[in-house]
Simulated scan of single mutants.
Amino acid sequence: MMNWLKKPYRWAWLFSLLLTASSCWILLKAFVLPDRQVAVATVTDSTAASTDNSTEETTASSESVVATDTSYTSDGLTITLTEKRVDETTVYIADIQTVDSSHLQTALAENTYGRNIKETTSAMAAENEAVLAINGDYYGFRSTGFVLRNGTLYRDTANGDTQALVIDQDGNFSIVDESTTSAESLTNAQQILSFGPALIEDGQIAVSTSAEVSQSMTSNPRTAIGQIGENHYVIIVSEGRTSDSEGLTLYQLAEQFEELGATTAYNLDGGGSSTLYFNGKVVNQTVGGSDNSEERAVSDILYFK
Rank of each mutant, 00 (worst) to 15 (best):
S143C: 00
T187M: 06
A94D: 11
T162P: 00
S210H: 12
G145E: 06
N111H: 14
L186Y: 01
S179D: 15
L108R: 02
N116T: 04
D156G: 06
E88C: 05
V147E: 13
N159Q: 08
Y92C: 11
E110G: 04
S179P: 02
N128E: 12
A211K: 14
E201P: 01
D202W: 03
S122H: 07
D177S: 15
Q204P: 02
T90L: 14
I205E: 14
I167D: 09
P197D: 09
T162D: 13
S194T: 07
A206Q: 05
V213G: 00
N135L: 10
Y154W: 13
L199H: 06
E88T: 03
A123W: 12
F141I: 05
V86L: 12
T89K: 06
S179H: 13
T90K: 14
T152L: 07
R155Y: 02
L199M: 14
R142I: 00
F173L: 12
V147Y: 07
Q97D: 05
L108E: 03
V91Q: 11
A189F: 00
Y138A: 13
E178W: 01
Y138D: 15
D87A: 15
A107K: 03
Q204V: 09
A94L: 09
V207D: 12
A198D: 08
S122R: 09
I167S: 10
F146P: 00
L132C: 08
T120S: 14
E178F: 01
E119L: 13
Y154F: 15
D170A: 14
V207N: 08
A107F: 02
P197F: 12
Q163V: 06
L132S: 07
D137A: 15
Y92S: 05
Q105V: 04
T121N: 12
L165Q: 03
E110D: 14
I167H: 06
I93W: 03
L165H: 04
E88P: 02
D168P: 01
